[in-house]
Amino acid sequence: MKNEVLVRVKDLKMHFPIRAGVLNRVVGAVKAVDGVTFDILKGETLGLVGESGCGKTTAGRAILHLYRPTAGEVAFRGVDLAKESPEYVRRARRHMQMIFQDPYASLNPQMRVGEIIGRPLRVHGLVKDAQEEKHLVTELMQKVGLNTSYRDRYPHEFSGGQRQRIGIARALATSPDFIVCDEAISALDVSIQAQIINLLEQLRDDLGLTYLFIAHDLGMVRYISTRVGVMYLGKMMELTSSDELYDDPLHPYTKALLSAIPIPDPPLERQRQRMLLEGDLPSPSNPPAGCRFSSRCPLATEHCRAVEPKFREVTTRHWVACHLV
């Protein structure tokens, strides 16, 4: 893999105002993403993990410019889209697509599968006529393993896994380079998850795609990702290669997260030590001072509770935000 940067995220912040009171004043902000920095290299799969409220989904959407970032920059092939014209952004969109968690909610129930998949082709002016569109849709359906005779059916006639295939075909229609998979397999049954994961891997290898793979299932993330970033309350806590993260986690949160995940191997499970975290996730509108994780970290010191640690490269290509590393 060449180390060519496809997407550069620098100090990205995405805050959502909280309004309240008679006059609907802004009384605070949900700091969904609060300053994260990372690169996505061409051809890699970057996994983004974390628990609910950690900001991984928001980060994915901000990277696709579905939201306007509060601060920071997201550059796609070296161009910061926030500084470009709406027309430029619209044209750039065809190179970056998204696959959603709930395949049903993200498909228009009144459109036939063929129309759903063909629509991006027409919107971006990639086909000359209906004949060409039909031809390309057939090709896409074959690519994702959908029976091409289903093109006139409606989304509700499909199972969850098949709907996710429709969503993937739609995302592939504009021949993108970069796809954000937002919890793309979370809603599916175990036996179907593997089908979709295998499909995503095969497409990546065949088409040279780059993925941002957002999920809470660390097992799947480890499996599919080249590198993995761990988020907690809007901050990136640790980022390194997939193997290194699991073999040598440095951040206490990563360690806790990994130890919390049970492994389907009963004798091994009986021996494993749990590193149980106290309490629940704090609210992203009112994160703890200092290190975000300090309120639940078993190792936290006064320094941790006062000063926010920098996200820094500790060893080669292994980034951590922790004072104790």
């Binding site: 036996s191 593997a194 097992g219 480890r222 499996y223 990994l258 492994i263 389907p264």
Partner: peptide, 25 residues
């Protein structure tokens, strides 16, 4: 067997391709 083979293991050292169960329930 299919269920167990379709799960990626967190502690897997080497990557073996997931064996998905084809078809639908």
């Amino acid at each position: 067997i299919g269920l167990l083979n379709s799960l990626p293991r967190l502690d897997a050292r080497t990557k073996t391709k997931l064996q998905a169960i084809g078809g639908l329930p």
